[in-house]
Design a protein around this nucleic acid. Structure first.
Length: 89
DNA sequence: TATGAGCGA
């Protein structure tokens, strides 16, 4: 279960994401996307959980939750970019 | 340095 997490605050780390999602199950990976131009957070990230049932629980439990002043949004992620590098969808 | 609609290098 790969999930897309958006509306994060700019200083929320992937470790913060991992800790939050681990309340609902085992987290395989957690990533916060950084702006390649500025090196700063883009305010969204991805979390992958081993069990899809835990993923559903995490979405229900964390979607809309207020984290660091922002109501973060959690949903199922799309497929990763098929090709490497710079193409804006 | 940069910032807020969105899907990763």
């Amino acid at each position: 279960m790969n999930m897309y997490v958006s509306n994060l605050s700019f200083h929320t780390s992937e470790d913060d994401l991992r800790k939050m999602f681990e309340q609902f199950g085992a987290v395989s990976s957690a990533k916060v996307i950084m702006d390649r131009e500025t090196g700063r957070s883009r305010g969204f990230g991805f979390v992958e959980m081993g069990a899809d049932s835990d993923g559903e629980a995490a979405i229900k439990g964390l979607n809309g939750k207020d984290i660091d002043g922002r109501a973060m949004s959690v949903s199922v992620a799309r497929e990763k970019a098929p090709r490497p590098t710079n193409k804006r969808w």
